[in-house]
Design a protein around this nucleic acid. Structure first.
Lengths: 325, 325
DNA sequence: TTGAAAGCGATACCAG
DNA sequence: CTGGTATCGCTTTCAA
């Protein structure tokens, strides 16, 4: 491997001078050309790891999230990656598959693995765990989509309550009175908020909450699929189902199809996130669309500000969702 | 930040001893406890970047691919990540969005960023470019899904030709004679192979190739969507369309829905990759299913072997696809 | 402007 | 079994 020493030797200067050249310092014109030539000839590239060991600063940004399969996350990622890239950073994704142990391990690894900053979608960690892993290290963290209560770090979130409330309100406006909801585990902030929005809409619509119509489980296809069966097996089944996440929506739609039930003829469905897929269906299923681009851009922008030394108090930003009907 | 020195001091031993303890060497029992206590008290974690600077070995594995949105890639990734994790590695994804410049930059960055190995889905780079960026560095690379001709590195690929041939043959067996194909750019190996499989099936079916029925473009939704319009606008439109990738399939299905054309009533479609989505549709669309799990596991296994010193000649492995009807 | 020397955090070697 | 020393590749004083 070619190092800065090799370049220095070939160019006939000292490593310090080469370093200065690379980092934009003042170097005599003739040395500049000599160094540039040497670098080209040797195909030299700085070793970011040696550099960051010394500078305690890095252009690698870690992205830590619970799932890769969700189009929501890949949408957000593409957007934040773009901004980071434009600013000279390089982002690298790690996925912890909603697993508590993995989440802890990866967070610890990333924090000490020489990343310059972290964009983090939390799920299981407590504030204590988070703090223990991150304190002392000087790595700025921006929370995305969710936040750990008690953690003093920037957070960029979607307005889950408002969005769910509107979605459910829409179903009510269409005349539905028996509206089911299938939601994620209450341990997940977004799931809790989406359920809250649903409840709020019911209340505002003067509809009594019927707990048999509220199913909850993991944020998976299976939850939607099985939830649908359970709901339709009720003595008095719902006429509409509000799905609070992409996979749940897919599960519900699939289950309906398999039973030959028409959407929205036999049962209405309001989905979440799966904009593209839902548009493909024979009669398009309405969905809540989260502002993926903006979420990503904002999170990246916050992180960059922190990396550039901003020390304002932690900011929590909520971005609006929209309904795709 | 707490370093190995701090631990050594607190434990009353030298840094070398602590290092030995951490890396599983023989240390006197009383020192072991002293060190363990010190580590716990200080919350010490090794700094992987300092370590790999010294050892020229790293447990970070880079994954470099052209797209994140494709369920195919996320499926493959989940599988390889699992195996790598079980073996103590940590994988981090970088995405280059099919961009040539980004692909080159990221490859260069990763190779010199201290990763231990790389799983790489190539798209635009030539063998020369690849070699220039990687030679000298001692980082094993396994190519996934595609390979650069002339690059001597392991490769794990799907049997694209056979799969496409079977898919097209199936349409022929159903009585179709005018079968269109929408494929990706011929610069992409998988696209070329899938087209070849289609042509092979036609030939074997005694059907003359009609170039007006062969549309090609980027591997995007738009290509499928617009391709569908173009094909259906022909004087003599096809009765079946073979889509050679996930997004193209989605584009075609969407376009058909929007025109109110029934699949397979008005036109038959054979898709690729989108197993879950296609199963949801009112009448399920048949698709080619790639062996994502196996591809990922095999690529990871090859990489691990290389990391453990295997120096067998480069291996190229092809894995079978299946048809989901 | 330049370069010698120190040092980032960890490991490897080798003498004790 | 232990610890002093050199070193990984690079940046950063600081003196010349």
């Amino acid at each position: 491997m070619t190092t800065i020493k090799d370049v220095a030797q070939l160019a006939g200067v000292s490593p310090s001078t080469v370093s200065k050249y690379i980092n934009g310092g003042n170097v005599r014109a003739e040395n500049v050309t000599a160094i540039r030539d040497a670098i080209a000839e040797l195909g030299y590239r700085v070793n970011p790891i040696a550099r960051s060991l010394k500078t305690r600063h890095s252009y690698s940004i870690g992205i830590l999230l619970p799932s890769l399969a969700a189009p929501f996350f890949s949408g957000v990622f593409m957007s934040l990656d773009k901004l980071l890239r434009e600013r000279g950073y390089h982002s690298m994704i790690s996925c912890y598959y909603s697993d508590h142990g993995l989440e802890r391990d990866y967070l610890g690894y990333l924090i000490s693995a020489g990343i310059g900053g972290l964009i983090y979608v939390p799920e299981n960690l407590t504030a204590e765990e988070f703090l223990e892993l991150t304190e002392g290290r000087n790595v700025p963290v921006v929370q995305m989509d969710r936040m750990i209560p008690g953690v003093a770090a920037d957070a960029v979130l979607a307005e889950n309550i408002a969005a769910s409330r509107q979605a459910a309100a829409r179903l009510i406006a269409q005349g539905h009175r028996r509206i089911a909801v299938i939601s994620g585990p209450s341990s997940i902030q977004t799931a809790k908020e989406r359920l809250a929005g649903y409840l709020r809409a019911l209340e505002e619509g003067g509809i009594l909450y019927d707990s048999t119509l509220a199913v909850s489980g993991e944020l998976t296809f299976a939850t939607g699929y099985q939830g649908f069966s359970r709901l339709m097996a009720l003595d008095n089944p719902p006429t509409a189902i509000f799905c609070t996440n992409h996979d749940i929506t897919m599960g519900v739609v699939t289950a309906a199809r398999e039973r030959g039930l028409k959407i929205p003829g036999d049962v209405s469905v309001f989905g979440y996130d799966c904009v593209d897929v839902c548009a493909v269906m024979t009669s398009a299923v309405p969905v809540v669309r989260q502002p993926e681009r903006e979420l990503g851009r904002t999170a990246a922008a916050y992180l960059i500000e922190r990396l550039e030394g901003c020390d304002a108090p932690p900011r929590v930003t909520r971005l609006k969702c929209s309904l795709i009907l």
